[in-house]
Design a protein around this nucleic acid. Structure first.
Lengths: 123, 123
DNA sequence: TGGTATAGTATCCTAAACGATACCATGAAG
DNA sequence: CTTCATGGTATCGTTTAGGATACTATACCA
């Protein structure tokens, strides 16, 4: 029953964090709808267990929709819910800052190899 | 040497996540400069070890500045760097979404107790 | 001489996240 | 009747995050 800003930030971050959730969300943002196997293919190092677990959590939070087709072999498709799509601007903001940060660290740590120039403010 | 959006998002999230970093950052945003002991007082359940560790990480990433006064007993003050302040809009975006999300879950899970109305879009 | 305050370290332990691997059900195709 | 593809579970082990507790240095103050 807390209602502080830090509580809200943590609530939001819970949805975005975990080793795989950002990648999964970005996949669904850029591909719209993906089968389980397609997601797995696109995330080369994830285990089946982790992919299932993360998708279930996202589903519980009403971020992704899981559509099951009763066929054999099974076909299950994942996509963002309308509500899940409200996360896109947040991810864009985080992505933009992350991009600056990579540059910032590059400038700080190494004063060398200043050949970075790509800039993309959204996906 | 990855340069994908998900890599950038993860880089940014690394800075924001951890059980205490959001709280620490929000403290420094709202109070500007705080001594170690003041931070500890304001974060009632944090251990000294965790506070030190999280502050060190934030310092390494150039998010917070650590000012040491050579007196006894020691006095050490923490504040956001100018660069660290560029995180504020990001935290605001996350906070705003988190607020909506709390409401969203409330509507979904319980169809009761609809007495929530506070709205604050920034700190 | 001993207690106090501050800002830490060091050590050990638990719990949670994550990973590797094996297993399962189904029906169609061969 | 065997094999294949899909989308999972179950079980176990490791690795990491976090927590509890004890310890430290220093100078001042009584």
């Amino acid at each position: 029953m807390e209602e502080t800003p830090s509580c809200r930030v943590e609530t939001a971050l819970e949805i975005l964090t975990g080793k795989w959730k950002p990648s999964i969300l970005l996949e669904l943002i850029t591909h719209d709808t993906l089968r389980f196997s397609e997601l797995k293919r696109n995330l080369p190092n994830i285990t089946q267990k982790m992919l299932t677990a993360q998708l279930r959590e996202l589903e519980l939070n009403d971020i992704v929709h899981r559509e099951i087709y009763q066929v054999v072999p099974p076909r299950v498709e994942y996509s963002l819910t309308d509500y899940g799509k409200t996360l896109i601007p947040v991810l864009n903001a985080i992505n933009a800052w992350g991009e600056k940060h990579v540059e910032h660290l590059a400038q700080k740590d190494m004063l060398q190899d200043v050949t970075i120039s790509s800039t993309s403010d959204s996906f």
